[in-house]
Simulated assay, not measured.
Amino acid sequence: MTASIPPLRRRARSVSAEVAAHLEGLITSGELRAGDRLPPERELAAGLSVSRSSLRQAMFELESKQLIERRQGRGSTVTENPRRAGDLAGGLADLDIELGHATELRDLVEPRIAELAALRAVESNLLSLDDVLARSSDSLSPAESLRLDIEFHTLLARAAQNPLLVTLCTMTTDWTRRTRALSHRTRHARALSIDGHHRIYAAVAAHNGPGAAAAMEQHLRDVREVSRPRR
């Protein structure tokens, strides 16, 4: 069954980057799932009101990021996790991981992800991150705020252009979900988290690797502080 693609929100940027960011966001949020088949390119271009050449450039970028697989005569399909990443996830999934260990892993991995994202992010990555920030607000419900938080960190990992880092980010998200939920329980906590995301994004957009790593380290410290159990 061919997936349904929602309309594209146009901005004054490269059209192919906008299309790539739009589709990558749908994949990251789970609206497009592994195995979903995209509409034929002619139909997809018409549905998004873009030229076929712009769409082809976007599809080439998504293929290079290993987010879709394109086959002659079969169209484009959203991919599964790369094999090596899948093996890593499967190998660790059965371990009895304590929350403290997962948090420590996050402290080690996420600053490096932010640094690599700053060095490797392309325009579509920045558009996707900017879109999440535009939808983030301290007035959202804790559940919606947490969902966008996870989407931001996942997109940041994708911007680092390393599928294994995406897998690590996904696993640490699963292991720390209850603690992360605490960082969205109050309006102040949500505002603090969003402010951290803005500082990370600013460094990534400026291609400032050390600045992005430092912003992530500060963000994780802030999140831990507001996630401490109430007494």
Rank of each mutant, 00 (worst) to 15 (best):
A157C: 04
H153A: 07
H184M: 11
P163N: 13
A181E: 08
T2N: 12
E18R: 05
R224A: 14
N81S: 12
L168I: 03
E217P: 03
L126E: 13
L155G: 01
L92Y: 10
H22E: 02
L62F: 05
Q161T: 13
L32D: 09
L55I: 10
R199Q: 15
A114K: 03
R231D: 06
G90D: 08
S136G: 08
H188R: 08
T179R: 14
L156D: 01
R224T: 05
V78W: 03
R147K: 15
R10A: 07
A203T: 00
A20I: 08
L119E: 11
G196C: 09
D94K: 00
S193L: 06
V132A: 07
A159H: 02
G91V: 05
R52G: 15
M171G: 00
L127W: 03
R71C: 09
E24A: 14
V19F: 01
P6G: 12
R190D: 02
R71W: 01
L140F: 12
A117F: 05
E80S: 14
L133K: 06
S29D: 15
M59K: 06
A202E: 10
M1D: 04
G73Y: 08
Q66H: 12
M1R: 00
S14N: 14
V15L: 06
D107C: 13
L140P: 08
M171P: 00
S141W: 04
A118W: 04
R37A: 14
R177G: 00
Q161Y: 00
R74M: 08
E217N: 11
T176S: 05
P6M: 14
R11E: 15
A205L: 11
P7S: 07
L168G: 03
L116M: 11
T2I: 15
E31T: 05
R33V: 10
L126I: 07
E144Y: 10
S124N: 11
L105W: 06
D149F: 08
P40Q: 10
R230P: 02
R9Q: 10
T186L: 00
A213W: 06
I194T: 04
S141E: 13
A214F: 10
T167P: 00
L192P: 03
M171Y: 00
R42L: 14
I97C: 03
E80T: 07
A203W: 10
R180Y: 03
E217A: 14
A102L: 12
R158D: 08
I27V: 12
F152H: 07
D174L: 11
P142E: 06
T186P: 02
R83M: 11
R71K: 13
